[in-house]
Amino acid sequence: MAVTTDDVKKLAELSRLALSEGEIEKLRTEIDSIVSYIDAVQKIPLPEGVAPSPHLDITNVMRDDVVAHEGQAHSDALTAQFPDRDGDYLRVKKILG
């Protein structure tokens, strides 16, 4: 099934990418060609009861829900990289109308 320009526009919206019309058109042909390639997976028959993952030998790791370090231990290093800040707060555009 061919990928349309509207499909790519919708995908760009969902992916939070601001793309120009030119890029959308270029991506449409590229994604269409990649999708034709990956469609090969439709050809192989899947037997019943196939394992859901190749990593079934890995067990889930649980830990107590507790603070693992002292408060403020990493705050300075992390807040230093905020593009815009007010003290220790991250400043962003107004969210609610």
Binding site: L11, S15, I38
Partner: peptide, 26 residues
């Protein structure tokens, strides 16, 4: 990113992601 968003889109998940994951096991 666009390709991944396409693959995970509602309606395509079974055709692609679920199938590819099963293929990993095969």
């Amino acid at each position: 990113i666009i390709l991944g968003t396409y693959i995970l889109s509602s309606g395509y998940y079974d055709a692609y992601y679920r199938r590819a994951t099963a293929l990993r096991s095969i």
